Amino acid sequence: MKAISLLQPWASLIATGAKKIETRSWATKYRGPLAIHASKGYKAKNLDMAWKEPFFAALESLRVTEENGDVSIRFPHGSIIATCNLVDCVKMTPEFIDFVKSANGHEYDFGEYAVGRYAWILEDIKALDNPVPAKGKLSIWEWDGELL
């Protein structure tokens, strides 16, 4: 199965179904099943965004309240966390960006929208019950593992 590695919180936003468009600087001709891999590495500034709206609400299912009352967000890393179908890759135009901005939800907030970038349209997103450890790679890559 083809796979793509994403940093958190974007990988989990896709897994929760809050994000259905992956924005990229490059196009792909690939269409079909795609595994979503949560990269092992992370950037603290990206994870800090998870505590701000609209990220915080979208990631509610990953929040855990500790016995002492502290709240944490449990992000899987270094694992396949969801599957989906990549159904289209659209070059962004001003009209496309305006459409995404005007749509319900927070899709626009969860991506990098600029004319000339690409929107990968994802459908049939299914989070895995148990993340499957995997070593990620750049670009689209072939994942030979099995879904548990």
Rank of each mutant, 00 (worst) to 15 (best):
M1H: 11
K2I: 13
K2P: 13
I4K: 02
L6C: 01
W10K: 01
I14Q: 00
A15V: 10
T16A: 13
A18N: 05
A18Y: 02
A18T: 08
K19R: 08
K19C: 10
K20T: 14
E22M: 03
E22L: 04
T23S: 15
R24S: 02
R24V: 09
S25V: 10
S25D: 15
A27W: 08
Y30P: 01
P33T: 12
P33V: 06
L34S: 06
A35L: 08
A35K: 03
I36A: 02
G41C: 01
Y42A: 06
K45H: 02
K45W: 08
E53P: 05
A57N: 06
A57P: 06
E60P: 01
S61W: 07
L62Q: 04
R63I: 10
V64E: 13
T65M: 12
G69Y: 14
G69V: 05
G69L: 04
D70G: 03
V71L: 03
R74V: 07
G78D: 02
G78H: 06
N85E: 15
N85Q: 15
N85D: 15
C89L: 09
P94C: 08
E95G: 01
I97V: 12
D98N: 13
D98Y: 01
K101N: 15
A103V: 11
N104D: 12
N104W: 07
N104Q: 14
N104C: 01
H106C: 11
Y108D: 06
D109V: 07
F110A: 03
G111F: 00
Y113M: 11
V115P: 05
G116S: 09
R117Q: 11
N130S: 12
N130G: 04
N130D: 11
P131C: 04
V132N: 01
A134V: 04
K135M: 13
K135H: 09
W141Y: 15
E142Y: 09
G145C: 12
E146C: 05
L147P: 03
L148F: 12
L148Y: 08
